[in-house]
Nucleic acid binder design. Structure first.
Lengths: 203, 203
DNA sequence: ATATATCGACCATTCGGTCGGATTATAATT
DNA sequence: AATTATAATCCGACCGAATGGTCGATATAT
């Protein structure tokens, strides 16, 4: 009988948490199960009781982590009312003091490099992106209704803005000496505003 | 005595070529030396004669491949005279029929995920980016001299444009069903033009 | 004869996963 | 209450497979 009713949920959480840290530290390609066991304070067999294979664990880690980042960003965006401010509100993605950001990029890079060769991972990536797109689209539609933005199909525009976010992040994270947070934020503002302005009715 | 004087160069080239293909196919984390040997038509010992370790070979592969892509893009950009056209000329980066592009992204993703945990790789990344920045900066400066662009420091602006290129590429490559080449090219044009327009003297 | 080039068997190590057994806490039984 | 039964949780030694690198032997061209 289970000693505590929610033990499974507790253990799984503890394992995922440890795996996130270990994967971020060593890289998904280099972490061993032993690393993760150590970080989780469990033995090999103990961990195996909850996650039957490395692949299954990795999938759970990636999905959990993406969800976490997304929820944080959604909440942050909800703090703003102005549509443009919403679109520019995800500055936490370029915050070197933010643990989720600092840990998140190693995980994201690893994830993408695996996804290249793994259709199941690509599906996870697509779903994740689609969440972002929906979020950004809502702000875009609101901006159109209020007459701030021009006329366009919100979906591809949301994808463009999302891509700009990611491009900036890549540079900001991998080469911070030459891509400061100020540069990232300035690029974001000019990029997004400029992109939207391209739909304004002037020509 | 070497049977042919340039044998070493020939063999190294042959090995790098094989490694590029194998790494792109299986992913850097999964390729084995045996894979690369097979692709190169050499034995383990034969390959070891030219590259003493896997790490050394990988470094050579990444550097060679980055150089190749860069040279192609530089030449392409040189075909155009108009500064804005130069900045938008790298459409080959979103060409699904271009072998270098199709093979290049798996390699780039792998490289970045390794670079996260490897200072030497980050240095290679920085150097590579700096090449792009110089290239883009030249076009920007030319555009400023000709009065097409506003007044700004070309270096950070070049970094922004370069980041936009990369952000689009990430989505285009990993989720082509939802990010068509047309979307990529449209995003590029609007993104770059809009970004530059943000420096025009209106306010 | 000599230096280079190539081969492939071999070695040491690492790692993911398994499995029998120990442990623990509840449930059932006496 | 004490004892036994049961089912879950957890341990860590062990195994087999894979892999990077080595090395002595062989071949080739000067």
């Amino acid at each position: 009988m289970p000693p505590i009713l929610e033990l499974e949920a507790i253990r799984k959480n503890q394992i995922i948490e440890a795996a996130i840290m270990a994967m971020a530290e060593f890289g998904s390609a280099n972490v061993t199960m032993a690393d993760i066991c150590r970080a989780a304070g469990l033995s090999k067999g103990g961990l195996a009781h909850y996650y039957k294979s490395k692949r299954e664990l990795f999938k759970a880690v990636f999905e959990e982590f993406f969800k976490r980042i997304f929820v944080r960003c959604r909440d942050k965006m909800a703090e703003f009312d102005d549509p443009l401010e919403k679109l520019l509100s995800l500055e936490l993605l370029y915050d070197a003091d933010d643990q989720d950001a600092v840990i998140g990029y190693p995980i994201l890079f690893d994830f993408m490099s695996i996804a290249v060769h793994d259709a199941e991972y690509r599906q996870i990536f697509r779903n994740w992106i689609n969440n972002w797109i929906e979020l950004l689209s809502q702000a875009l539609i609101k901006g159109q209704e209020q007459g701030f933005f021009g006329k366009f199909d919100p979906d591809p525009v949301a994808r463009s803005i999302s891509a700009i976010y990611q491009g900036i992040a890549t540079r900001w994270y991998l080469s911070p000496e030459l891509h400061s947070t100020e540069w990232a934020l300035d690029t974001l503002r000019r990029g997004v505003k400029g992109f939207l302005a391209s739909y304004d009715n002037k020509r």
